[in-house]
């Protein structure tokens, strides 16, 4: 799909959703539900929970469409933030197990480029982010991945990587500062 055309359709459909148009919410759903379901599934690893969260996500879109500002954020970014936050809330509620298998940064594959199936939908911003992630130390990359894709907390990550909590906080905070500096270069 033409990403720009998609973006303009989404911006319009979200504005109409803000006005109470159910068909417009359905348009938003058609354009974005597969992506947002993938995001929820990645964090929750549970289909039934992810379906519940997806339902919450679009109810939130229905209620909050009026505050979306297309001059401030892209519509996909706004929607993915809602989906991630709802999925993390659900994970923190603790009814389902979170991913806790050990992470060994030495044997982890360094931050990989997107898989073949997702490369077509990856944008320029994704490529820049990967270029900057590749400049981080392996253990930093592994920690950020565990947080972003598995929804792990500092405590979870300290346990999975076998380091003290303070060390994990240092790694992640330093990595985020390096990432920001790289992206702004």
């Amino acid at each position: 799909m033409d990403l720009d055309a998609n973006r303009s359709l989404l911006v319009t459909a979200i504005a109409q959703t803000a006005a109470g148009d159910r068909a417009a919410l359905q348009t938003v759903y058609r354009l974005t539900s597969a992506k947002l379901f993938g995001v929820c599934l990645r964090i929750l690893s549970d289909r039934a929970e992810s379906e519940d969260v997806l339902q919450e996500v679009y109810l939130t879109v229905w209620n909050k469409a009026g505050v979306f500002d297309p001059g401030r954020a892209s519509p996909m970014s706004w929607l993915i933030a809602i989906a991630r936050n709802k999925a993390i809330d659900r994970l923190r509620a603790g009814r389902i197990g979170r991913r806790m298998d050990p992470i060994d940064a030495a044997t982890e594959v360094p931050d990989a480029a997107p898989s073949a199936e997702t490369v077509l939908q990856s944008g320029e911003e994704n490529r820049r982010l990967h270029a900057c992630l590749a400049g981080l130390e392996r253990r930093e990359q592994a920690a950020l991945r565990g947080a972003f894709f598995d929804g792990n907390t500092y405590e979870d990550l300290a346990q999975r990587m076998g380091v003290p909590l303070g060390t994990m906080k240092s790694w992640i905070r330093r990595a985020m500062q390096k990432l920001k500096a790289c992206l702004e270069r």
């Binding site: 539900s33 597969a34 992506k35 997107p114 898989s115 997702t118 944008g123 994704n126 982010l129």
Partner: peptide, 19 residues
């Protein structure tokens, strides 16, 4: 804006029809 483009790496999965 900085981090969420990472979600491009996540494959889309069609939800069940009844959602």
């Amino acid at each position: 804006a900085r981090l969420l483009p990472w979600a491009d790496d996540i494959a889309a999965v069609a939800p069940p029809r009844d959602v």
